[in-house]
């Protein structure tokens, strides 16, 4: 069974990287809508997929967080991506299998995946 002991190793490892993470303040933000309708529509696995992908790729300048209602129930799950100095990009009806592309094309390479964005739904 897992115990909290492993955290000590994570601490050691992460402390070395902590300086890298100092720039998180001006880093990239991924915000997932977690109101009732978002959760019912599947926002939790989408958020988990972002956390997982960011972790796998060791993207130390990316934070994944949540917001409440974005006000567009029928387009949930909704994810907003903020790149420094750029306008936010809103993705709608996001599924976990779309997350890999959003991370590699948009977050890593700076090109939003237009076909998943809100413009395509309205």
């Amino acid at each position: 069974m897992k115990t909290l002991k492993e955290l000590e190793a994570i601490r050691q490892k992460t402390l070395n990287e902590l300086n890298l993470r100092k720039n998180r303040e001006d880093g990239i933000r991924v915000v997932v809508g977690l109101a009732t309708c978002g959760i019912a529509a599947g926002a939790r696995p989408v958020m988990a997929a972002f956390v997982d992908e960011v972790n796998k790729r060791q993207l130390t300048n990316v934070t994944v967080s949540q917001t409440g209602c974005i006000g567009l129930c029928r387009l949930e799950p909704i994810v907003e991506v903020y790149l420094p100095g750029q306008e936010k990009v809103t993705y709608c009806k996001v599924t976990p299998d779309q997350v890999g592309r959003i991370v590699s094309e948009h977050i890593v390479n700076g090109n939003p995946v237009m076909e998943y964005t809100i413009g395509n739904f309205e």
């Binding site: 994570i10 902590l18 956390v51």
Partner: peptide, 28 residues
């Protein structure tokens, strides 16, 4: 609180910590 005490200045939203928490709960 217990986790933060072990982690010290490492924040709780560090991706490795999130993965650990999910696995910890899973196994328990």
């Amino acid at each position: 609180a217990e986790i933060q005490e072990i982690l010290g200045e490492v924040p709780l939203d560090t991706p490795e910590v999130t993965a650990f928490i999910a696995e910890f709960i899973h196994s328990n």
